[in-house]
Design a protein around this nucleic acid. Structure first.
Lengths: 219, 219
DNA sequence: AACTCGATCTCGGGG
DNA sequence: CCCCGAGGTCGAGTT
């Protein structure tokens, strides 16, 4: 990883064209060849960048970074205040917990918490407009589509509504009930769901994990 | 801006919990107080970060960055290889061209490319749930609502659907056709639009610009 | 301040 | 490989 602090101008030409007037900035050149240009604010997003795979050619204070689609990032250096390189090695990467995929996994293993005698048909049940998170059968064999979110907002209710409309056209499945399941459900989303006959279920992540570990302990 | 290269472990607790095992990384502390942790790959995204407004407390090799929602980023430094600070000053910021606003502008000037004899009523036609990108009249005087996106996805079709439902309640406008116009239209979005009787149009940005410059040359 | 929506989104998973 | 959805989305503009 190479760190350069320099007064520079930057031009990007590709999916759009963009220009940065002269100022002092951080230029970050990573081992994969990628380059990013940072100002002294915003943790997350650089002012400008080129993602890998791409290649840097350096010619006397003029850098050109190019990728396969022939997009270019041109950096003109005017005054270098710092220039250092560092060996970092491979990163072991991030360990996450508490995301939607894990919620889906947990609920899929415990659909009986939604209703007695319920069974899972499949996760990611495919439709022409995208996969339904869970398709289940209730104790009577009726179909239930479940949409799972970490945070339940209006978008999620709209998504489930689209799935239900489509699934209910399938005579093998219809009628299909809907369940909107999330760790937190926004009041507006709850109103909309209820108005459309969709049941809302608040998920307790720790409790689902608890069930998991309880069942594990039984064996 | 402060640049630190150090072997460290990182823990984030907030909207999720995440952990980074010990490795050498770049720690970037910006003037707004934000902190980001970078590995030697991926130009854009830090492995972990805290966005401003937030506050760093440093206590003998242990950093804690906290925000108002009480999310915390904890960095434990094990071995510091580099530590430097730099004065950057305010950045004049990025000048962009070629985004959705420009597409709308171009298409507004050339609604005849959507159909012979079509005319523009107005851009950003106001409704109670937001502005419609373009409202047009076809050769028969019928109303047409146009939603413009750079990339056409399902969300955009939903948005246009809501506008059409509202506009069609206005007896002065109804019936109102819908056109979903984008540089690229995703298959699922096309299926949904077509199912709802919405016409899909693929926009060629360079061609629209070409028309522009051709017409310019005529004068 | 809350909400909406675009983004050179980035990133990961599944077919 | 592309398609698709999620994101600690971020960040800007508007109400």
């Amino acid at each position: 990883m190479r760190l350069v602090i320099a007064r520079c101008t930057v031009d990007y030409a590709g999916r759009l064209t963009a220009h940065l007037p002269s100022a002092v900035r951080l230029l970050l050149v990573k081992a994969d060849g990628s380059v990013s240009v940072h100002a002294d604010d915003r943790a997350y997003k650089p002012l400008n960048w080129m993602s890998p795979p791409c290649w840097l050619t350096e010619d006397d204070g003029s850098w050109v970074v190019r990728n396969k689609a022939d997009e270019t990032l041109t950096i003109t250096l005017e005054e270098i205040q710092h220039d250092s390189s560092h060996e970092l090695g491979l990163d072991p990467g991030l360990v996450k917990d508490g995301v939607e995929a894990h919620l889906q996994e947990l609920l899929a293993e415990h659909v009986h918490t939604l209703g007695d005698g319920w069974t899972l048909v499949r996760r990611e049940y495919p439709t022409a407009i995208g996969p339904v998170d869970l398709l289940c059968r209730d104790h009577d064999g009726g179909s239930v589509a479940v949409e799972i979110k970490r945070r339940g907002e209006i978008d999620g209710v709209e998504q489930l509504t689209r799935y239900l409309e489509l699934l209910n056209r399938d005579p093998l499945l219809a009628p299909v009930q809907g369940i909107f399941a999330a760790q937190q459900i926004k009041p507006q989303a709850r109103v909309l769901a209820t108005d459309r006959g969709i049941r809302c279920v608040t998920l307790d992540y720790d409790a689902l994990r608890g069930i998991e570990s309880d069942e594990f302990r039984l064996f």
